[in-house]
Design a binder for these strands. Sequence first.
DNA 1: GCGTAAACGAGACGGTACGTCGGGTCTTTAA
DNA 2: TTAAAGACCCGACGTACCGTCTCGTTTACGC
Lengths: 186, 186, 186, 186
Amino acid sequence: VETRSPGRPRSEQARRAILRAAVRLVAEEGYGALTMEGIARAAGTGKQTLYRWWPGKAEIVLEAINEGAAQLAPPGDDIRTFIRQSVVGASGPNTDLLAGLMAEAQMDAAFAESFRKNFLAKRRRVLRDLLVRARERRDIPADADVDAVAEFVFASIWYRVLSRAGPLDKRFADRLTETAVRIVER
Amino acid sequence: VETRSPGRPRSEQARRAILRAAVRLVAEEGYGALTMEGIARAAGTGKQTLYRWWPGKAEIVLEAINEGAAQLAPPGDDIRTFIRQSVVGASGPNTDLLAGLMAEAQMDAAFAESFRKNFLAKRRRVLRDLLVRARERRDIPADADVDAVAEFVFASIWYRVLSRAGPLDKRFADRLTETAVRIVER
Amino acid sequence: VETRSPGRPRSEQARRAILRAAVRLVAEEGYGALTMEGIARAAGTGKQTLYRWWPGKAEIVLEAINEGAAQLAPPGDDIRTFIRQSVVGASGPNTDLLAGLMAEAQMDAAFAESFRKNFLAKRRRVLRDLLVRARERRDIPADADVDAVAEFVFASIWYRVLSRAGPLDKRFADRLTETAVRIVER
Amino acid sequence: VETRSPGRPRSEQARRAILRAAVRLVAEEGYGALTMEGIARAAGTGKQTLYRWWPGKAEIVLEAINEGAAQLAPPGDDIRTFIRQSVVGASGPNTDLLAGLMAEAQMDAAFAESFRKNFLAKRRRVLRDLLVRARERRDIPADADVDAVAEFVFASIWYRVLSRAGPLDKRFADRLTETAVRIVER
DNA sequence: GCGTAAACGAGACGGTACGTCGGGTCTTTAA
DNA sequence: TTAAAGACCCGACGTACCGTCTCGTTTACGC
């Protein structure tokens, strides 16, 4: 049997209200206008409740994004599908959230550390592992530089997120897939 | 002949002190700690002098970067050389400056507008024009998607700037060039 | 026979720890730094235990003072002795406690009410009754204004407590007694 | 000729609005409810303007009181008149202001220091000097303890301010004067 | 040279958000 | 029912910058 620690348990309701408020505020006013004070106000919570569980607004937004991503289907072994998921997952309202996180990482060294290690590198790694398995299956050449390809894919997605140089749609995703294949093949 | 407006002319000395102070502060404390107040303090000027000539800190940093880039040799027609210049120009102390600008563009809509149009798009355009000339010279295939290639190159550079996923050196630049060539061929 | 209410009885140990902690904290950090949170921390109790039994920190301190005063000998009929007891009882570590209570009474209307009625007025009344008995014994003139004398004595003590204008010692107490006598006589 | 320091000069308008707001808030809500934040709000100024010129709310209230006192007639040589002025000056809306200051002095050691030296001691000293001159004029005995008398007078006034044990009116003032005279005479 | 006028440094102004502290309440487990 | 623990909403704290303003001072030009 499980024993629980004493004291009032964390309010799941408050947690959700905070994540929802943060996402809504970014959508409405932009990440630049997002403040801890504003999140607390919009969520109807005290500021202390924010600071008790997150070091700053970036971590709140990050948790909100991960929350959303967790509901997606697990990545299969199909690279085209994975890239489509990644591109579409960075489109729409998520674009502003991701852009804000990347901005924050340039401002706050502590957040940068965890963001680069636990988010950017981790996503590259997932694609890399997919490519490794494809290589083992002889779908792509044995000398393919899987790290370079994974970096290329996410670099392209992030550039569109940050520069708004073009849409993040299926067409773009498929062009990335084809380019990736072309890079890798002789 | 030129007529000059009356009144005390703008102080070139103050302008230089401000740019130098901004660059120094970013190098020392990071872009996140950069403030208009801090720049004025470090440059030994009044805050009004900053606001008279720039809307915000991002524009100051942007001017400082452009100041530095203006002293470089004009881009020739060699793509490998151009990419090398672009990569190296984004390395060293410039990495933090550029990362800060990109971050600011995600926070401030007004700056984003001009940054994307006058900086990001302009640099892509220079590479695109180089590629167009190469295409006309039949160095690369007639059906090469020059826009996609230009976007790929800068996407890769920016990803390294922002994610610190690897060095911005000549080796990286040459790999970009080779990949670009491979994308474009058949 | 006595019936006891059901449930866990009040912890005398906690009560004592709280009073002791409050006194210690005032002595160490001053009344201004005294907080309910701090008392609970120092006493090793929960905050709720404080709020269950006292409305605020002032009442805790007041109970601690009364606890101390209860151990003194009951006032006899000698005025000189009574004033000496009163002065000495306001000296030492008690000075800070009393000063804090008086301060709190200026801040919190609810506490002020009970402090003035149950503490200040009560102490004046004890001296007044002493004086009335002295008057009946013909030790002091029949037309002596006993209220004015009692007010004078405590006013003087409190002024030293609050202004730190001089020591609260036996010499001061005896001067008060002599002055009181002089006021009352012709 | 006078030279002025550079920079925007202090706003006399803001200063007055702050003092007026502080006095009004104490009258309406009591000193206990007075906050720096509330003063700034009521005065329509920024908080920084408060902290730029005063360390805390007590100093603001103190300046407001001194401002009011400065408009009074200078103390003549008549002791009865002086005591009347002192008592009446502590009555009405000033009672709450003074009570608040004394409370604050028990909470904040830094303020206590200046309050005791520059306010309490100074006022005692004025009365003491009056008594010394009276002694030199042979109006009161040569062996009169002027310090004790001055302390008695202010102790009595402060006790009424803090305990609300009775009114601060002319009748009370004159009784103080008579008692003071009686103390001093054989 | 002398007046006009803009730029300069300094620094106060009304604001907003920061991150923290404590208030008083509520909700859990344990005694 | 009380107690310890600790999360909750709330509001004030004192600070840092924001962008604007108002000073006295400096430096050019046109008269």
